[in-house]
Write a protein that binds this DNA or RNA. Structure first.
Lengths: 342, 342
DNA sequence: CTGAAAGCGCTAACAG
DNA sequence: CTGTTAGCGCTTTCAG
């Protein structure tokens, strides 16, 4: 069923049909009603490609997700999807698996498909890749910070500040030997966490020990292995600040395997406050990150550009930095008895 | 950059350029090379819409996901994505949120976009909706069973058998008062689990008690609430078989809140063996479901149809039923000391 | 082996 | 307010 057949049935020209589809106000009410009726009856919907050919708009955005099995990313993704869906957009899901090559491949496909915009969650792409995107003039937003992101809007979390809160809390609970166990991803954020960690230590006159700094995979297994190493060294830490809850879960498992108690022997601090951090034993003290909100803000920024292309150039890129909140539970002990509602 | 400009640069007609793109064997080697060179230099890629307009193929499949924050669904989704990506396809992610209305809306959008196929994960659509799809002649595969799926391929899990294994295990550990706490989703599967549950009880001469059967939300909170009710009644069960690990996690939390021990006072059996089931305290005994494999098989089935449209009609729909494996950990106790490797 | 030209389905300028 | 018509960029007959 195409526009010509509708036109014939209605006894009008294709232009008129096209008009009721796109500028109904320019059609006489009577003709319009007649055509609308036929459209409804025949369940006609305009061919999507033909439309795209004319408009060069797709109603589609690309969504780069580092790993679709990581609930941290998916909470952000859900935020993006929520606003996209509301705007009658649909998202092409790109499961990047922390692989720059795969991300690049996806990026090319997205460009080919002429998506109206791309949201990158914690991208692992290089500067050159982004420049490519910029040439294409595709609206972009970065969720999760990135070095060398030439002039894109960014939504992120104040990781340095977050780390400071975390380490300060540990310090406040009497810990001096605090390790930082961090994942390879997200890279830039974890660097900021490192800075925050070092900030607090040096402010308190505690020297930073290289043997308390450890990089690992950003997974439960990574946390397990990393914590194991950390605890097996000569002078093990009494507290481990991790860069993600996943790592923290693995770390807790490793500590339990060593028959050590949490938090009495070792305190563990998470990051992100994923749903499960409330269900492990002991419940995990962690930093609450507004993941869903990050997705929402990111998507809004993206649609702002999409919807006002003209202003695109003159506006300078915004950076939205969200704040975290320390979520005190059991895994770090606590002096004051600060409750936890659920 | 469009095909005409390429043609001009190469001093040939657009037809020839189109040929080297689609049927290079029909072009003289010398002309072909020249054109290929120009294409490479200019990084020309054919307009995707124009192509679609001619071919009516999109290189896109739709992927219906009940809820993108549920790792059970995402593991399946990842399986689908894995094979789609390998086939150079890209998936439109539809986060349905267990809402038939939203799923229907998404379905319409997918049809408009003329996706080459749709994979439904645990769909909540009605018979009529599927008939609509069938009219459009869009290849479909159902991952997770469904009543009234008119002639689609299906990949699922033998839930009845799985439930039998679970309840038998509980019975073997001395339990007679076994409750079944099940989610609203996935509907059909949970009905099968119910059947398996009843099968075993009646085979063992244990009457089915209505007060041990309880429906709840398929979430951690749902599990918490459901188990709470279950345990607060007059003659509480000594074991709870749940329809998903999420529910089991919530149930465990509720049981702990009541100062009861797991498994000594109450045994808890999960379903799915998600990654976290290994990390709660005590580690959860559950049924291992090959989720990723389900996604892979489903996608393969889908691409089988996509790639051989002609045979589409004569072939009768396949149903692949995968088997589960009982994963014995701590939450149900165990007589024999069956280890767990990691 | 190559080119001219028709057509995929739709939109929008232009003319009436 | 409506119709005619020229594209959008590409593929594919049909001639040569």
């Amino acid at each position: 069923m195409n526009i010509r057949q509708i036109a014939k049935q209605a006894g009008v020209s294709v232009a008129t049909v096209s008009r009721v589809l796109n500028h109904p106000e320019n059609v006489a009410p009577r003709t319009r009603e007649k055509i609308e009726k036929i459209i409804a009856e025949t369940e006609y919907t305009p061919n999507w490609f033909a439309r795209g050919l004319n408009f060069n708009k797709t109603g589609t955005i690309g969504l780069m997700i580092p790993h679709i099995l990581d609930s941290v990313h998916m909470e952000i993704a859900k935020g993006v999807e929520d606003v996209a869906h509301q705007k009658d957009y649909i998202a092409l899901m790109c499961n990047v698996e922390h692989d720059a090559e795969k991300e690049r491949r996806y990026l090319n496909r997205l460009i080919k498909r002429k998506v109206d915009g791309i949201a990158f969650i914690c991208s692992s792409l290089e500067k050159e890749d982004f420049e490519l995107v910029q040439e294409q003039n595709i609206p972009v937003v970065l969720i999760g910070e990135h070095k060398n992101s030439p002039g894109f809007h960014v939504v992120s979390v104040d990781c340095r500040q977050a780390a400071k809160k975390a380490v300060t809390h540990l310090l406040g609970n009497g810990h001096k030997k605090i390790a930082f166990l961090y994942g390879k991803y997200p890279k830039v954020e974890n660097e900021y966490k490192m800075e925050g960690y070092k900030d607090v230590l040096s402010e308190s006159g505690i020297p930073v020990r290289e043997d308390y700094l450890r990089e690992t995979e950003n997974t439960i297994e990574g946390g397990y292995l990393g914590a194991k190493k950390l605890m097996e060294q000569e002078d093990p830490p009494t507290a481990i600040f991790t860069s993600s809850d996943s790592i923290a879960f693995g770390a807790m498992d490793a500590i339990k395997d060593k028959e050590l108690r949490i938090p009495e022997d070792v305190a563990v601090m998470g990051f992100n406050n994923v749903r499960m951090s409330n269900l492990v034993e002991p419940k995990l003290t962690t930093l609450d990150v507004p993941l869903h909100k990050m997705g929402i803000y990111g998507a809004r920024l993206l649609f702002d550009i999409i919807e006002n292309e003209e202003d695109l150039k003159q506006e300078k890129p915004k950076t939205i930095l969200l704040q975290t909140k320390l979520k005190i539970r059991k895994s770090c002990g606590h002096k004051e008895r600060i409750g936890e509602m659920f």
